Simulated assay, not measured.
Amino acid sequence: MVRILANLCSIVPGRVGGSEVYASRLLSAFAAHGAGEAPDIELEVASMARTRAAHPSLGDLRWHESRWKGDIRLLRIASESTWLTRRSDGFDVVHHFGGRLPAARRGAAVLTVHDIQPLDIPANFSPAKRRYLRWALPRSVMAADVVAVPSRWVASRLEERLAVPADRIAVVPSSYATDPLVRSGGAGCEARPLGLPRALTGRRFVLYPAATYPHKNHGTLIDAHAAVWSRHNEPTLVLTGAAGRDHAVVTEHAARAPGVVHLGWVEEARLASLISSAAAVAFPSRYEGFGLPVIEAMAAGTPVIAAAVTALPEVVRDGGLLVGPDDVDGWIDALLEVLDGSAEVARRVERGRARAADFAPERAAAGLIDAWRHAAQTAGGQT
């Protein structure tokens, strides 16, 4: 038997963002599919207080929950090197989903690294966090037995920037939501989409679900949308996502543009409804290690327009329209093409559905199991 402990101490429900969804989707995929396929693997989860209640899909797993809440970053970091280390006794592999390894740890280490933003675009971080991550990330990557990444593109960045050997990297993409409570209310639902203001019922809208960080590039999409709106008085542009470092700038820009609705952070069920009901999901981000909303859109049969950079072309392939992230004219043309509803748009949607199947939960679970077994082997554990 190979005993695995998933370290979710870095997660603060509703605040950490895509990394929380990535981890919960993968562990849910294992709970639903992996346990039967890998009876030799026993999975348990460790987290700060209140994380378990936020993820009912993981309720059947054995859970170790700290009595401390994770709102304070320094407390989370300290807990990983004290409380978590004690809980790690007897486990063959500890999977750290937070992008860095604790100073003190036990067991073979799998480390999830979503991207290397602290090295590639350090200006996105405060000076203190930048210094810490630029020290902690390389140290953690080199100490891990296996580094799990969501895309081949991130793997290539680790190989190029940090000289991580390819045989220590496991590409483990996440999956789309399958919980009917999350995916309810999609296309064909008689009710208006959850989370969309009643005044916009019946209007076509384009959705961009992303926190307001500088690299998410909201400005290009808002400018392209304004040009399309001036010609057609549609579609509405709906923005969702938590507040990031560029929130004030994005909010001001959106307020000056016509037909923009900024909903802020919305719960997962509402986001799924919006994705399923949108005329398109637009994703102009300049830097992505994966791009989970793009997978959600393709799985839901919603047209996708994405930036032709970093991991997005790898994820989308021919299942959507790829545009240069700063090409405003290109984004205008892409939005107009979606509004036109051409046969080519319909063909891309079908190719998108086929591409999304590559990220089905059972495939995600299999990738996770392979990474755990590889770590156990590398450290001389059971297989």
Rank of each mutant, 00 (worst) to 15 (best):
I369T: 12
H64A: 07
P284K: 01
A224P: 01
Q377E: 14
G320Q: 11
W265H: 15
L263Y: 09
E362I: 05
K129V: 14
M298I: 12
L194S: 14
E267A: 15
G264P: 09
R73E: 13
A269R: 15
R139A: 13
E44C: 08
F290E: 03
A191W: 03
R317W: 12
A255F: 05
D40V: 02
C9S: 05
I116W: 00
G330Y: 08
L239K: 00
W68M: 14
T240D: 09
D120N: 09
S151Q: 07
S156I: 01
G244Y: 12
A269H: 15
W83I: 08
E37D: 13
L137Q: 04
V94C: 01
A191R: 13
S276G: 15
A334N: 05
G341S: 09
D40G: 11
F359Y: 15
R286E: 12
R73Y: 13
L263W: 04
L61I: 02
A356F: 10
M142H: 15
G319T: 10
V206M: 04
G301P: 10
H96V: 06
R192E: 08
A103M: 06
R198Y: 06
V147W: 01
R52V: 05
A170G: 07
D167A: 13
L339C: 12
A128W: 11
V172L: 01
G341A: 08
A272C: 13
A23P: 00
F125H: 15
E37N: 12
G34V: 04
V266R: 07
V315K: 05
Y22R: 02
A166R: 15
A136R: 03
A32N: 08
P102A: 03
G241T: 07
G90F: 08
T236Q: 06
S19I: 13
L137K: 02
A375G: 00
R348S: 13
L271Q: 11
H96D: 06
R373N: 11
P118W: 05
A148Y: 00
Q377D: 13
R62C: 05
V16W: 06
V266Y: 08
R67N: 07
V141G: 03
V338W: 00
L321Q: 09
A307L: 04
R363W: 01
V261T: 13
L58F: 06
R355Y: 12
A254H: 02
R106L: 11
L27A: 06
A300K: 02
S156D: 15
H374R: 15
